[in-house]
Design a protein around this nucleic acid. Structure first.
Lengths: 238, 238
DNA sequence: CAACCTAGGATTGTGGAACAATCTGCGTCA
DNA sequence: TGACGCAGATTGTTCCACAATCCTAGGTTG
């Protein structure tokens, strides 16, 4: 009946997929008139979709210069992991209060990741792992955090897209996911927190490496006016 | 130079103020063509501002029915406090790692609140108290959380606007803010967390009461989908 | 008299064209 | 070489149009 979704949001969804699946590389400039034509929507509609994705942190706006797919800076990566640490560790603490069903749902996500790994469906492994962490945060029972975390993980994929070989990067994490999951489900929350802390540290280091490596090889011309990266594009004024 | 802000965001800012300061009561329907005329911007521009505020949780969209200023449900309130608990408690934990300057900034916000209280500037007391909690979350050092929290507090003001007498509601919290602040600054983090937990529980209960009381008095006409038409606190001057 | 149906107006959702503001690149001139 | 300026391109915003949907009043029917 009333659950129809505005065109703008559907457009945002397809663009989000294109970006997070790596079809639109970071730094790509999106020309609105062309994109609108390609997607068969009006310029306004497309722009509203772009605003949404900017709010989610996937795009970077610059007045009168247009939008580009966000290229993560090292600051952005640190910010992402700051959020991850806060939310995921809080979630583990909070896991003392959740139901058995919640925990089994959590376990299911890890099992899915293990299946993808065993089946050597490499491109799914990363997604499955992220889904475990999403399920972890979901233990907090907060739709706000769920939404926020979805955006953060989407940003993280911007970095994954730069990985030289996703396969060797993604594989080692699954067993650590399993350890953490078992500890959470078994009530070993403090150990789980310690493991997760280490996990996030290692992960952050890896992502930072890639971003740094990729950031330094800036192709010639654009040093001077390189994109003003206000960490989240938010105007602070209190 | 380059820091110009799009018209849409400025419009969003003025609307945000009108809402959080209570000039636009919850439930008020916003007719886009009228509002656009009043604010002197195009309909598209206004709509983009509305989308932003919807994303922030201050407005509620319904396809083909328009936007209304969000009326907090009890679920919304619980969600707000879930977020507050997670972020503020995490912030206290994190306060072990922040600088002396950060802590003194925190202290300054409480002092400001105390001044407002002493000066009997009641309408400022609430804002000042919220600013303390904002500063607390800022200890996490995450712009993402800062932005999120700003939106959450804005939503909370939707409930404050319903308070029968803000004065007696707001006053008692300041001394508790002071206690918490002192404990955080003095390193008594566990005690601070306990106090804050109690604080948030009490606060949540109070807000829930108001929301419930206000939600049940559905005025006579029980039409399912009717939106309460507050006579519009907006000055028309077309 | 009540319940259902219908038509018309009102409001929203989206599209399209136009114009002003600004950026960018290139050629000119010193 | 380097500064200047101009023209094309792209964005930001406005105005207008129209289809889709909702809402309401009023009429019809049982």
């Amino acid at each position: 009946m009333n659950d129809q979704v505005p065109v703008g949001e559907r457009v945002a969804e397809t663009l989000r997929r294109r970006i997070t699946e790596g079809h639109l590389a970071p730094g790509t400039q999106l020309r609105d008139v062309a994109l609108a034509a390609e997607l068969g929507v009006a310029r306004h509609t497309l722009r509203s979709a772009l605003r949404l994705l900017e709010y989610e942190g996937l795009l970077t706006y610059q007045m009168h210069k247009g939008v580009i797919v966000k290229t993560l800076s090292t600051l952005d990566v640190r910010e992402i992991y700051r959020v991850r640490r806060t939310l995921e560790l809080s979630a583990i603490e909070h896991s003392a209060l959740v139901t058995e069903a919640d925990l089994s749902r959590l376990d299911a996500t890890v099992r899915a990741a293990e299946l993808a790994l065993a089946g050597q469906e490499w491109n799914r492994v990363g997604t499955a792992s992220l889904r475990f962490h999403q399920a972890l945060v979901a233990l907090l029972g907060s739709s706000t955090f769920d939404q926020l975390f979805r955006g953060v993980l989407a940003q993280l994929r911007l970095a994954f897209a730069l990985m030289p070989d996703e396969q060797t990067w993604q594989s080692p994490w699954i067993s650590r996911d399993r350890e953490i999951c078992d500890l959470v489900c078994g009530g070993g929350r403090d150990s789980a927190k310690a493991l997760l802390w280490q996990y996030l540290d290692d992960s952050e280091r890896g992502v930072l490496d890639v971003v740094r490596r990729n950031g330094t090889e800036v192709p010639k011309s654009n040093q001077p006016n390189s994109v003003r990266q206000v960490p989240t594009g938010v105007r602070q004024e209190v």
